[in-house]
Amino acid sequence: MTNKHSLETRIIARAESDQAFRRQLLHDPRAAIEQAFGVTFPASAVVHVEEDRHHTLRVVLPASQVAEVELDDAQLTEINGGSGNAGQIGGGDVFGPRPGYRDL
């Protein structure tokens, strides 16, 4: 099974090297991806492809799979281990750029 990130990476690479595929991808993304990569999307899936316009930031959040739960102070301390520095990240950009995306 192909994961979503791997498929996106392959689609971008192919679209950068194959202009006919890029045109088909922009015109009929579902058919282009299914034909080129041998995947089948469920009928309910929405497949949307757009070109980067350099001044557009598009963020797609994953579906929330966990209901929000309120924790009391004791539970937070237990999870946190009592440390005042928990959750802090140091040393620069941890995540880096997403493949296929350029800085705005």
Rank of each mutant, 00 (worst) to 15 (best):
M1R: 14
T2W: 13
T2V: 11
T2I: 12
N3C: 08
K4P: 01
H5R: 13
H5N: 13
L7C: 12
L7D: 10
E8I: 03
T9E: 05
T9S: 07
I11L: 01
I11E: 01
I12T: 11
I12S: 10
A13R: 15
A13D: 15
E16P: 00
E16W: 01
E16T: 09
S17P: 01
Q19D: 13
A20H: 12
R22P: 02
R23W: 04
R23S: 15
Q24E: 14
Q24T: 08
L25S: 01
L25K: 09
L26K: 08
H27V: 09
D28N: 14
P29H: 03
P29R: 08
R30D: 06
R30Y: 10
A31P: 01
A31N: 11
I33C: 06
I33S: 11
E34P: 06
E34T: 07
Q35A: 10
A36F: 03
A36T: 10
A36I: 08
F37D: 05
F37I: 09
G38R: 11
G38C: 12
G38W: 10
G38V: 08
T40G: 06
T40M: 09
F41P: 04
F41M: 06
A43G: 12
S44Y: 11
S44K: 13
S44A: 12
E50A: 10
R53T: 15
H54M: 04
L57P: 03
V59C: 01
V60T: 15
L61R: 14
S64D: 14
Q65I: 04
E70V: 13
E70W: 07
D72C: 07
D73Q: 12
A74I: 08
A74W: 03
Q75L: 10
L76W: 03
L76I: 07
T77V: 04
E78I: 00
E78A: 13
I79R: 15
N80I: 02
N80T: 10
G81M: 08
G81P: 09
G84N: 06
N85V: 02
N85W: 03
A86Q: 06
G87Q: 05
G87F: 02
G87Y: 02
I89G: 12
G91F: 03
G92R: 02
G92T: 00
D93C: 02
D93N: 06
V94E: 02
V94K: 08
F95I: 06
G96S: 09
P99C: 00
P99I: 03
Y101G: 02
Y101L: 09
R102N: 06
R102F: 01
R102W: 02
